[in-house]
Design a protein around this nucleic acid. Structure first.
Lengths: 218, 218
DNA sequence: CTTCGCTTGTGAAATGATTCACAAGCTAGT
DNA sequence: ACTAGCTTGTGAATCATTTCACAAGCGAAG
């Protein structure tokens, strides 16, 4: 019941634990140890216990954690007991792929509106969602109580769209455009950038092939 | 010229700096200060200087950093002077979107092969890339020297594909399937998970709407 | 009822990352 | 040549996260 400051990486791990717990629940498993959760999530058992203990004591010593109860607790903490209304801005290739991604709805994220500026796209239906002109965004977000906005526009427009979403009272933004979004005070933004991830891998490859011919033991 | 251990987040920032530097270079800017880079990248100026100083001294006191020279240095460090060969496994919605994403090639990541198991897709051409049967993966990866593999399969197959890529001698993996990949020793994996990101935002929304009515100052 | 094996919960220690603060140094202007 | 105004590079300090290590507790078995 305490509400501690909790880091991004901790939240991510908690979401991962929840995913595993749901899977285990589906398999009829009733108890799971921190060691087991750790193995499946790539963390250490101490880390798992520390993460979970932030919010209280949910485990039974000697036995582990009750899968179903812990799943419900995490759902509460993460706000995943309820479902969220999401809107999508930018129905290009990525946007279309997202609209067709059934898992979003299954996991509680319902895309209730989509927007674009391109006249060829506006008015069409994509995977059952009608594409509206961007100008309707403020009205729809307020009217329908949209909580999360996904930006899948070209990078040039992303900042402007973010500002627009923020002004319309959106609660959070998931950004696929490869730019750093600023000036969205109070609205948390998370950016997913394929190229940036690839560049991170490039660094590892480059250092591995250069000096780091280490670990050539045996 | 030193090769320090460098954290993931630092690498990400360096890639971001590089992106900004290239933009500035395109605008004809020759010098940039740490303060300016910081503003545009969302970091602090001290952070920028610390990051850059890990690899040597590139700046001129009183003036800043030479845009072009620093860009080249970062390209070297990150391995982004060269181009990389990438293969894609899983030509579904996300896979198709990736194949159509021109920026990958522009940034030096060339998709040279695509694989799938679905008979309807195998043999077709998607955005100019012929889709091959998965069975050809080991041969192609070795023959063409593919360095990076992108997994865009359903989660059930992802682990198996990762193992296959690793055995074929791939250097790194970018994973879009919502599972933790293990058993790929020595092969770095980076996972991009839309749902996990949304769940992170969900946590923020949930805590914001619950107790945390703080910062309600006038 | 006692013992044994296993697991949690958690202070304390270690490690890692970021911020501070300032000496050193460059450039332009006088 | 000197001063004024910026900016870098970096040790030290702060802050955050992860790992360690172990007492406390549970349940099964005898």
């Amino acid at each position: 019941m305490t509400r501690p400051r909790i880091s991004d990486s901790a939240v991510r791990r908690l979401a991962l634990y929840l995913r595993l717990l749901r899977e285990l629940r589906g398999q009829g498993v009733e108890l799971v140890s921190s060691r087991e959760l750790a193995e499946r999530s790539g963390a250490t058992s101490a880390q798992v216990r520390k993460d979970l203990s932030l919010f209280g004591s949910f485990g039974k010593r000697g036995r582990g954690y009750a899968v179903d109860a812990l799943a419900h607790t995490l759902e509460n903490i993460l706000g995943l007991g309820q479902s969220w209304r999401v809107c999508l801005v930018g129905v290009g290739k990525i946007g279309t792929a997202l609209l067709g991604y059934r898992d979003l709805a299954h996991r509680g994220f319902h895309v209730v509106a989509a927007f674009d500026t391109e006249p060829k796209v506006v008015g069409t239906e994509v995977f059952g969602i009608r594409v509206r002109p961007l100008s309707e965004l403020p009205h729809v977000v307020q009217q329908d109580g949209v909580e999360i906005g996904i930006i899948a526009t070209p990078p040039e427009s992303a900042q402007e769209v973010a500002r627009c979403l923020a002004e319309a009272g959106i609660g959070a933004i998931l950004n696929f455009a490869p730019v750093e979004l600023t000036a969205t005070d109070h609205v948390p933004v998370r950016t997913m950038d394929v190229v940036l991830e690839l560049e991170g891998l490039s660094y590892l490859l480059a250092t591995a092939s250069r000096g780091d011919q280490g670990t050539t033991a045996s």
